[in-house]
Design a protein around this nucleic acid. Sequence first.
DNA 1: ATGACATATGAGATATGA
Length: 259
Amino acid sequence: MRVATWNVNSIKAHLEAVTRWLREAKPDIVCLQEIKCEEQGFPAAVFEDLNYNMAVLGQKTYNGVAILSKFPLENIVRGLPGGNSDGQSRYIQATVMDGSRSVTVASVYAPNGNPTDSPKYTYKLEWMDRLIAHAKALLKLEEPFVLAGDYNVIPTERDAKTPSQWVKDALFLLTTRAKFRELEALGLTDAFRALQPTAANQFTYFDYQGGAWQRQNGIRIDHAMLSPQIADRLTGVHIEKHVRGWEKPSDHVPLVVDL
DNA sequence: ATGACATATGAGATATGA
């Protein structure tokens, strides 16, 4: 089973690149973030034509997450459990049957958190605490699950081309990275690091500004976190970097895990 | 350095992103 995650930075603005990549990579399941539209504006017919089922949690202008799946989606959970309905669409979860195997998949869009001296950073940390609490609850079920998405966390120095440029940024503050490590400490596996423990210069985001793509000045902030019951089945992981070089690309590229 | 660059909204300038 091939599961991908991709922050598309507006599904409407980048629909050409998204469909091109779906035809090329043929993933079974895709977790999308930053669709930047409400459910009724989501181009569902385009994905139905590509034989995808979908679950969408949208919002006007900002955020918005979705799951595309070749398998029927069951037990759909809209919004991160434990939240007091903050109005931000950042989490959607569903369960699929891959043959006789049941797998739960979530599309995760954690807050950016900048500037770090504002309520936005507090919100980022609180949201990650809620994600940690929900992960704990899922782990108690002892079933296979994947939490894939844009975590807005640079986990380590080797996950940035120029770490010094990020030391005061919400994505790389020690407090932020500690939340990510909490997820790992619970027993979740960062799929990319599991198979590429020392790889450098492997990035999922290249800023539109400053010629970041041309300079290969990127960061690795999109992650697929695996429960123990599915980490054993991880057979491959790669970043679809070439997509960033296409016409009118998202600033993120897809991350693909094979399970 | 609050800018570059891009997107949505809405019709100009602002909020957001990472």
